[in-house]
Write a protein that binds this DNA or RNA. Structure first.
Lengths: 202, 202, 202, 202
DNA sequence: CGATAACCGAGACGGTACGTCCCGTCTTCTC
DNA sequence: GAGAAGACGGGACGTACCGTCTCGGTTATCG
């Protein structure tokens, strides 16, 4: 039997009827996030989430269109999405720092596994794919593009650069090693990526 | 003999006893490949493969460790893997041609969807991940690295380049757009990738 | 969305606040009766009744103790209960007429199916069983007993007859064929029942 | 019984794969019968039966078309169906004895409740209704008719009697009191039923 | 060259999870 | 306030596959 009582002060009896929607949502999301970190996408089951959250499966089905959508929401609930992007005058340093930070995130925390599995699930779950693009990859890509654009404005980079493709060649290269781990994803690798490109971009 | 059913009018019905292992394997792989192209990884089920192949699930479990491994083998059976890599004297043309061909493969044929879903499945299926690296991504990466190495030997590229990272910045960038389709994967995009890099690599 | 507007002048949106209790009750009962005739006890659901009546399930739970009780009330609302029992001087004719009428009721109208299903439901629903006895079978049995008693008083039947048992042997025999349809319930059967008994009752 | 492996020391762990069908069927039926006697048709759930039998729900769905069919089979498994019908020279005694025995069966054992609930369920479950007629009520009715026929042949009853209707007026009257308990089902009632009829039947 | 062992198909088994339906309870908002 | 609206926890439904296991039958191999 699943027993999951994160807060000991709400011990046993919860009413059968309606509870505030926000509270239920929060509990479901927390349970989803924790389950995701604990077991990964395999083993991430609506049934288990419902059991851990003390909620009904029906409630989950009403609010999330797919298992992936719930997982994504749960992930964001547990792993606070830090979108900060330091913008100093040195574009090379900025890119390198950001890229290195990303490498450490996906390598040294549980986030890496979760992200890769979310992307994996998204290949067969259009709802998740759309949500992922809209809420995760899209904003991050935009941030990086913005940084590049500012550097172009400052004259640090050639003005005719296709920023989007540069993003694919920096972050996309890292995702490549994350998702198809022929070779390890290291800090040096991240630095090399910037190096390779920067000569042509200036 | 109480019952006599000549083979001709019961084409479907195949004997129940032992058949040559190779024949069974071949039929299973063909069925797997066809099912994969027809329905994608979702809907790709060992049960369905067994039914299409007229084989027993038990037989499949004996030879393939996971659903993904079977799918990968089935894919290779149906989609003949062309590994040719034209190697002219012009490294830029070679890279561009190869990259553009890749873009067309994943965009204009069913292969793209299958590949992305195989990679997706590999995120939670270590057996498949290993097989994919060993039999698909590894050889292709090696081929590209080899081409770059030859260009370096010919003096067309700087000798201190990390070829592997370049591969990630060309093919990995394409995979990025394939797997996280924030932006479309176009022929122009492929050309831009080479452009961006080549200035710094020479 | 369930939309069920029996009267055209209240087309769609009815206010959410309080409405007269009697009106609500009436609408619920009508909806219950119609649903009962339309779908039988299977498919008779408090949820559906509420939706058809434009009422809240809560309101139903407040007034009816069980699904069966609601169904019974609904049945009485739609099928007006005719309790008339012609009482001529001829006891044989009276019994036969009444019995034949009963046979036609349960055979040629939807009432038969509903009654049998109500009795069926009553086997596991004590509330319904009690209500059914009190409001349906009890009064009818009393009427029949009364008729027999009058015939005894007139000297048409022996005075030491147990009228109740006779009712069971007439109507009960019909219910037997209704509920356990080994043999059809026909008009001839009804006549035979009276025949069989009358010889001993006189 | 070719094989008998009395491994009493491994009662708990049962293999995951296929087990002899007959053994599984037997366990399911026993569990069904016990659950039926314990909780009645309400509370009789395929899920519970599966759990008690240590079987999969799928297995049950494969063999029984409806909940009622399973309940009926389970009932027969636990309550051995005794069809004996003593046939002495005295038709009155025979009928009375059989009827009184029936009254005691349904009044003094759990069988009564189960039978009534099975009949109840049969009102909305055609599969069960058919099975009940074929396997329970039909044979019993036939036995009674046979007895009556023999008595007619012996000259104890008039030869133009409709035996079937007599059965309805004896057993059907009892079922009437069982299913619609306006009045109690007593031994005296059973004797009265025979009394009422016999005068006219001779 | 006929017995036998290997191995396949067929498919049932215990499970897990799915997505749906309805129950009876409870809260919120409106008239 | 009473009633509609409707979400909530719960439980059972029937389905789809999973991975395991037994059975019956055929065929290749070997005595």
């Amino acid at each position: 039997m699943a027993e999951f009582t994160p807060d000991a002060q709400t011990p046993a009896r919860r009413g059968r009827g309606r509870r505030p929607a926000d509270q239920v949502r929060a509990e479901i999301l927390t349970a989803a996030g924790e389950l995701l970190l604990a077991e990964g996408m395999a083993g991430f089951t609506i049934e288990k989430v419902a059991a851990h959250a003390g909620a009904s499966r029906m409630t989950i089905y009403k609010w999330w269109p797919s298992k992936g959508a719930l997982a994504l929401d749960g992930y964001f609930t547990v792993v606070a999405p830090t979108l900060a992007f330091a913008d100093t005058a040195d574009i090379v340093a900025d890119l390198t720092n950001q890229l290195v930070a990303f490498v450490h995130l996906v390598r040294d925390t549980t986030a890496g596994r979760v992200i890769s599995q979310l992307i994996g699930q998204a290949q067969t779950d259009p709802e998740l794919a759309a949500a992922y693009r809209e809420r995760y990859s899209g904003p991050r890509r935009a941030l990086a593009v913005e940084t590049l654009t500012r550097a172009m404005a400052r004259g640090q980079l050639r003005p005719d650069i296709d920023s989007e493709s540069v993003v694919d060649q920096l972050w996309g290269a890292c995702y490549h090693r994350l998702l198809i781990a022929d070779l390890p994803l290291t800090e040096d690798f991240a630095r090399t990526l910037v190096d390779n490109l920067i000569r042509g971009l200036r």
